[in-house]
Structure formats: structure tokens, C-alpha cells
Nucleic acid binder design. Structure first.
Lengths: 124, 124, 124, 124
DNA sequence: GTGGTCTAGACCACC
DNA sequence: GTGGTCTAGACCACG
């Protein structure tokens, strides 16, 4: 069962995108694997305090991307092959790294300063 | 005059928030200073290819935060004191650093791996 | 035993309503009479390829309307008196006739055109 | 401007389908023509007493079917060519005629009885 | 003012 | 219990 223990909703970003991102990060870390069971719409929406439809939208997009399988009346499962896992890893790491580098550069930090800053926050 | 040369609109995030973020990052980098002139709503909306109302919304929120001053019929100017600059720097760096550290940790990267990844992307 | 030989499920209308309508049309035609046996939930759900709960819902509404009687462990039977038969006939014919007349009028057909159209389709 | 004067919501059928049907019947009757203006989402939803999204869904499907054109910030217009008009006419008349003939036959009416019934209701 | 999207709650059919 | 759909209200960007 995929965990949403430490999931915290951020403001300003669509919740369904945050749910997708959470699962994809789990794929990258290896804690989410093919065949893993996904919490039901009702359970997860109650856990996160959002509407079941918001969860449904996230799951539907994951299904359209070919990462999940849903069948009416049955549990939803992750369905990942090697290519998909590799693609997700590449996309997620690329996206986050690019974003933070762009932000740091815009704020005038040197590479050394940026790395030092991130190293500092790592200990939190 | 505050520059929007390299400003690129991202999808999925409200544009007015991106405009605010751009200016705040300029404050952090020092390229935006107190007294600097802000492009007019009309000019900036044309430059970015968005609606003047969207720019208006960003400027209004910056005014409410006390970072900008607008007067009818006159140029808008940045109005920053030391405390505000310090606050903005702290908030922006804190936010971006926390986000990337959280993301990397969720994806199971070690500190060394994360720093190496970011270092790689810095050269782009 | 009430027949569901020619029953075909339409999309976009709740199935339990279609089941109720099928039985009521049988009442109008006289092929469904008081005392007639109703197929069991299990048999009918298998025949129509739908879930037993869906049939259960249709039967429960027919019971609440006083047209059917169910007893635990026994066959369900139609229970119709003259008033109910008359009411069902009136409601069903009235509803269908009104609907088609309204539709044809909205589509600008003259009475003669509408009657000719229906006459054509009758031969199908 | 397309009229929704005599539009009455029926229960048991999705409202957005009823809105689509209303417009298509207008196309059949010729009261809805290419280039005709469509009431805005807000105006129509208020008029019918439903949610703007329900109207939006109907309009979106009409757009996907190629019968309407919508542009953000601008009025929506009907966009019909001869082939589309012919197709809509055929589909709508066919559907309504088939439905009523099927219903009347299931209820055991003869062709003469059915025609007489409809003729009676025409005068309403 | 316009249309587009996100979030929310209720209902349907299925297992 | 499950997922799928319909209706509802608020917000965003646009003209």
C-alpha cells in the first residue's frame, strides 16, 4: 500500500498535481513499485481532507499515463515497467533540479553558495 | 527599470504569482532595489503577452505587502527598507531550499547525490 | 413469468429505471398481469448482465409503488388492482405521447409530418 | 440569440444532455442557424437554475462535435455547415421516432392506436 | 462581461 | 467496500 504519511498540501498548486507528484517521487525512490496497491478514493480523500473527485482526477491522469490500473469495484494497482520507471525518474529529477538551479541563479547565488545553502537545509 | 527579459511563463501556476516571484527574486539578487521603476501595467502586459488585469493583480498584492508604491498617473516604484529586503530574502531562499531538499529526500537521494545532481545542472 | 427477452440496456439512463419501465410497459400491454411471477434477482441480473443490487433497487421501488410483493424465501409476484393498472397505463402512455409530441413540435414538424414519420418507422 | 424560453428540465436525464438536445432540435427546426449567438454560461445557468459547469459541459460537447465555437472572453457562436445540419436532423428524427415506436409497440398498441394517441396529444 | 479549471458532494453500477 | 459520472460553486485569465 502506497504511503501518504508525510504528505502535506501546498497552497497555490493544484492538489491533484501534488498527489501525482507524490506518487512519482515514490516511484523514483523505489518505495512505490509495480503491483503496489493504491489507497481507495474514499480513504485517501478522507486522509488528506480533500474531495474524492480530486483524488480521482489524479488517479485518472496516472492511468492515462499508463502508470496505474483501475477497475470498477476493485482495488487500483500501480502498473510499471522498466521504461516507465526510467522515464519518471528522468523527468522528476530533471524538473526539480532545473527549477532549483534556475531559482538560485535568478537570486544571484553562486554555485558554491547554492550548494552550501542546500547542504544547510538538508539537516533539518 | 525592473527587467523581465528572461521571464518565461510556466503552466499550472497562476501568472500573477509568477510575476510576484520574479520581482522578489530580483530583490534577493539585488538587481531590484528600492526606488527602482516598475514597468507600467500596459507595457508589461504587452511584453509578457498576458492580460493587464493579471499584472494589476500582481502589483496590487505587492503593494499590499508594502514592497511597491503606486500613485495614479505616476510611475510605480519599488519601496523597500532593510527589514523588508531581509524578510524577502529569507522567505524566498528558505522556500526554494526547503522544497528541493524535501523533493530530493522523498526521491530517496542521499545528500551527496542531490548536491552532485544540482551541480551537474548548474552548468546548463 | 415476466419476460425480459427483448430487453436492451440503453446508455445514459439508470438501469434500474429501465427495468421499472419495462415492467410497466408490460402492464400496459397486458403481458404482465396481477399474480405473474417475477424472475429472481439472481436470475434476472445474470440474464441482463447487471449487478443484483441494480435489480434489487428496481424491485424495491416497484414494491414501494405497490405493484409488486416480495416475501423472504418466496417468489416475488406482481400485485395489481384495477386502479393501479389504469394509473400505470395513463402515466406511461401520457408520458411517451407528450414527450414525442413535444419533441416533434420543437423540431418544427407539422402534425401530418410527425404522423407520417412515425408511420414510416413503424414498419422497421 | 438562441432561445431557451420553453425549456423545462426533466428528471432522470442528465441536464447537459437535455441542453444539447434542445439546441439540436432547434437546428432541426431551423430556429438555430450557423452564426447564431449562444447565451453565456452565466446567463443560461441562471435562467435554467443550474450550475454554470453543467452548461459548460453541454457547450464543450457541442464544440467537440463541431457545432459550436467558443473563445475565452468572447461570445460563443453556432458553427454549422450543410453536412452537419443534415446529420443532426437525421439523428434527432431517427432517434425520437425509433424510441416512440419501440415504446408503443412494447405497450401493445397497434399502429392506428399509436397514431391516434399522438394525434390526440398534438392538440394540447 | 466571457470561457476554462479546480475543488466539492451526491448518486450510480459493480464486486 | 470499489471506481465512474453528474451537478455545484469559486477562482483564474481574457476582451
Amino acid at each position: 500500500m502506497i504511503s501518504f504519511e508525510e504528505f502535506i498540501i501546498e497552497e497555490g498548486i493544484p492538489i491533484y498535481l501534488q498527489v501525482i507528484r507524490h506518487i512519482k517521487r515514490g516511484i523514483v525512490s523505489g518505495t512505490v513499485q509495480s503491483g503496489d496497491e493504491v489507497p481507495s478514493r474514499r480513504v485517501l480523500s478522507a486522509l488528506l481532507g480533500v474531495n474524492p473527485n480530486t483524488i480521482q482526477k489524479a488517479f485518472r491522469m496516472l492511468e492515462e499515463e499508463g502508470l496505474m490500473e483501475s477497475h470498477a469495484g476493485a482495488k487500483s494497482l500501480m502498473a510499471l515497467d522498466e521504461n516507465q520507471i526510467a522515464r519518471v525518474c528522468r523527468e522528476m529529477l530533471d524538473s526539480d533540479a532545473k527549477n532549483v538551479v534556475s531559482a538560485m541563479k535568478q537570486m544571484g547565488l553562486s554555485k558554491a553558495d547554492a550548494l552550501a545553502l542546500i547542504e544547510t537545509y538538508w539537516e533539518d
